[in-house]
Design a binder for these strands. Structure first.
Lengths: 234, 234
DNA sequence: TCAAAAGTGTTCTTATTACACCCATGG
DNA sequence: CCATGGGTGTAATAAGAACACTTTTGA
């Protein structure tokens, strides 16, 4: 068969913007780049797309390499293609952002890559256009979480309402009324109250909830509205 | 400097999903593909990314080639990268969707490519994964237009409320109450009433409106809510 | 026994929906 | 003079926001 013989060809990589939540603040998993150029500098976890791989497969592979995790929430963010974004050679980057339960990733794997979690607002200097990627990912997360029940992906299987509220407050850098928050969240029908309480962070203890996975699938694309005035955010 | 010498390289193309509205229904501009493989079949307008071009630049160039238009609404949709999506040779496609005023494009240019407008729900057989691209673009348009004042991009500078309502009704395949619709639209403050009326489509005539460009810029990312129950759409 | 965090109810305000009549005009 | 499509108002309902006290219990 014919080929597009004279066409310009480009190295294509994937980069993963990996979010986690430690109960206090939103964090990003970054690695120390292991090869030239910019070896030893901080970077998003990435990798080159291999001949038999789709972009999604490459991104899942890369995420798995770093975290040991599979089947986590991941979506394509944006294709970065500026011809000079990597000074070595033209390289496009298809970026993916994922939300993981920070307690589930395998630290020893992560250690091999010299990975560290950084608070989203205190990331170190990064290579190339990775700061722009992170900026876009943060914006998209805030945008999407204001409408869709996406943040549960960052929490462990069982979590409390105060934990969930903390997460929203952290992401939107705001303070929410707990009465209104719990009413709104519970009114979605997405949460199932457990019998046990989390007793570590308060004397009274807070009830655990689990996600109702079936309803979650169904409501995922629904427009919720967890954040009162998404317009008025800082 | 070093190069990623042994890395797999990929031909990268852009494809444009071009929406227009003729006053009656939402349409897509498609071309007859001019080269092998699949020469003569219907296709999205596309082109290969050139060495010095970013993806955005390539997409703008391709759109301009077909329509003669510049500075129209365009946003990146998705990067399609399945290794076998083009049987000739591995080719990634970065897709962009744009909204144009259907009356502004230059028909003679379009004729060179044997381009035609098709109602979005009656597109012919298309090459490769172009049907999936169109499906995604339609979904994104509906999604986005339910929240953001994006559909004005499809209308001429001056338009009437009935025209605008027709557009929303067409895109959501629904019927809206004109009293509630006009109240909601006008309450955004985005529209400036003109003195003239459009007299072609009714005896009484309908007032023209123009977009308040400044407010439009400001409110573009705001969450509006033109469609009563985005959840309950068919 | 008290400090600290969890949990819950009511009122007010605003937004959304449903719904029906008059207006202007060209034929 | 009437058929056609444009334009407008009101009342009922639902959703969102503001707000404060009681409960539990470990130290």
């Amino acid at each position: 068969m014919t080929r597009y013989s004279r066409q310009h060809k480009i190295v294509v990589a994937v980069d993963c913007i990996i979010f986690g939540f430690d109960g206090q603040e939103l964090k990003l998993l970054l690695i120390k780049r292991g090869f030239e150029p910019e070896k030893g500098k901080w970077s998003l976890m990435g990798g080159f797309v291999q001949p038999a791989e789709s972009f999604e497969e490459a991104a899942s592979r890369v995420l798995h390499q770093l975290t040991g995790l599979e089947n986590v929430y991941m979506e394509q963010l944006y294709a970065f293609g500026d011809p000079h974004r990597d000074p070595t050679e033209r390289t496009a980057s298809i970026t993916y952002f994922s939300l993981i339960d920070i307690h589930k990733y395998e630290k020893q794997i992560s250690d091999e890559y010299h990975a560290e979690w950084f608070p989203v607002n205190q990331v170190p200097d990064l290579i190339f256009d990775h700061p722009a990627m992170i900026k876009m990912a943060k914006e998209k997360l805030r945008y999407k979480a204001a409408i869709h029940p996406i943040l549960f992906e960052l929490l462990p299987e069982k979590f409390t309402l105060p934990q969930l509220q903390n997460l929203y407050e952290g992401i939107y850098d705001t303070v929410l009324d707990k009465r209104n928050f719990s009413r709104k969240v519970l009114s979605t029908g997405l949460l199932i109250k457990q019998k046990e309480k989390e007793k570590a962070s308060s004397k009274k203890g807070a009830f655990y909830f689990k996600l109702d996975k079936k309803k979650y699938q169904k409501k995922f694309d629904a427009f919720l509205n967890f954040i009162p005035n998404p317009d008025n955010l800082k």
